[in-house]
């Protein structure tokens, strides 16, 4: 098995010390840090697939997120040193909507989206509609993600979509909502373009949107 394969395996098996050790070894051997980032993307995909199949659970995703974050931190100084950066596939603004403070799901999405090559602007938690609107004006993202766990989050998502419409920005962005209590009823009610309870599935939808946008 190559070091690259071994590292991916260690990440997928949630073996944190081993994954970090291999990453360091690869950098010391002078390997291209962008290649290591590509492996993180691959590992995130495998973990996402396992979650979709019901083999992995939220706890596994949180731990995987910690490992991926740790590995990016290992790679980052090298990237800076070489003056290289990764190609961005798209821009993604995300936040937990007003009235809600749950961020486990949001953080998993961010890790997965970053691993997939998105530039992520994280607005944090309890984000009022106006802050989403301002972020769209400022960052001009391709996609806006709204997260929330509480029942009242659904109403906040609706208010946020309405505010985006009012600011005449609705046709500039795709909107995806996510969270434990989000479902098809919520998606219709809110007026989003897609919904998901599953970060990997969500990121796949986002990549498809980007492809359609670049293609069309």
């Amino acid at each position: 098995m190559s070091l690259s394969e071994e590292m991916i395996k260690a990440i997928v098996e949630l073996n944190e010390p081993k994954a970090i050790e291999i990453a360091k070894k690869r950098l010391e051997a002078g390997e291209d840090p962008l290649k290591i980032l590509d492996d993180l993307k691959r590992a995130a995909e495998v973990i996402g697939e396992k979650y979709e199949k019901g083999e992995y659970f939220v706890a596994d995703l949180v731990m995987a997120g910690e490992i991926l974050k740790g590995l990016s931190e290992v790679v980052r100084p090298k990237l800076r040193e070489l003056g290289v950066s990764r190609k961005i596939v798209g821009k993604f603004v995300i936040g937990t909507v007003e009235g809600d403070i749950h961020d486990i799901g949001k953080n998993i999405v961010i890790t997965m989206a970053e691993a997939a090559g998105f530039e992520v602007i994280d607005l944090g938690v309890d984000v009022p509609p106006q802050k989403f609107v301002e972020a769209i004006k400022q960052h001009n993202p391709d996609i806006v993600g709204m997260s929330g766990l509480l029942t009242i989050a659904i109403e906040s998502m609706k208010k946020t979509v309405d505010a985006i419409k009012e600011a005449r920005l609705r046709d500039k962005v795709k909107i995806i909502i996510g969270g434990g209590r989000v479902d098809k009823y919520a998606c219709e009610y809110v007026g989003a373009d897609a919904w998901t309870n599953d970060a990997a599935h969500g990121v796949r939808i986002m990549l498809k949107w980007i492809e359609e946008k670049r293609g069309g």
């Binding site: 029942t151 209590r181 009823y185 919520a186 219709e188 009610y189």
Partner: peptide, 9 residues
Amino acid sequence: VPTNLLLSE
């Protein structure tokens, strides 16, 4: 009973 059903149906 999903709460969103009560909200939106």
